[in-house]
Amino acid sequence: MSRDGLDRRVAVLGFPGSNCEVETQRALLAAGVKADIVRWNESPDRLSHYGGFVLPGGFSYQDRVRAGALAAKETIVEAVTAGAEEGKPILGICNGCQILVEAGLVPGIREGDVEMALAPNHRPGGAGYYCRWVFLKHVASPGRCLLTRLLGQSEVLPIPIAHAEGRFVTSSNDLVATLRENDQVVLRYCDAHGRVSSSPDVNPNGSVDDIAGLCNPRGNVLALMPHPERAAWLRQVPEGMETLWATDRSGAAGRGQDLENEGPGRRLFEAFGWEQG
């Protein structure tokens, strides 16, 4: 037991320009996980006692230079790196995902090296920021990734994306094959029926191998472009989506309490729960 019981709490890191700290903390609390929002310039020593980290979405340094590039150089990322080495659960969402990749924590095959990039979205008829709901398929083996251990194999999740630079790319020829071999590709874009595809209707940014979420070799760090905290309650699921989650949502009309129930993204936060783990 470390000081203040922090080892059973999650630190949601507020980088300069993060903007999803509050709802991410709320999603953790709803999942029964205690969480604090910790500012980038607070004591690194205290930070190192937390049991897990979430790097939330937003626009750290307003995506200047490249999304995540400047925040990756912040001093607190050292505490995140140390936590990753200790096997602590670490989830980077959207901008947090970009930071993890720019800091070389994911994919993390050659330790410390930056092995991928999150390039500007690529889709026909448009560039720039893109916000919509998509489907993800959980393709990793059961238990491979600490953060998705509560998802079923091949489970399909509706979830929103919102980013301008979300396309996983690499210039290394064999990296994608290595990622597959290592079972590090955790979540891929798919259609309502779980069919993975690179069609722009399905893969919204042109990501290589339709990757939406990648873990490190150890499986305790997940870099995920979509936003599970925006799908953590049933009410957040658009009622028109072709999914049972939407059917449930429409079915809850007039029963507000039911809409406060779990949404498809909740289990990623529940995975931080040490009690269950």
Binding site: C20, V22, G126, Y130, C131, P160, H227, A232, Q236
Partner: peptide, 15 residues
């Protein structure tokens, strides 16, 4: 073509 560029989800309150 306009609203896809806007973040409708941040804060998590969208209905």
């Amino acid at each position: 073509f306009v609203y896809r560029h806007y973040d409708t989800e941040v804060k998590g309150c969208a209905v």
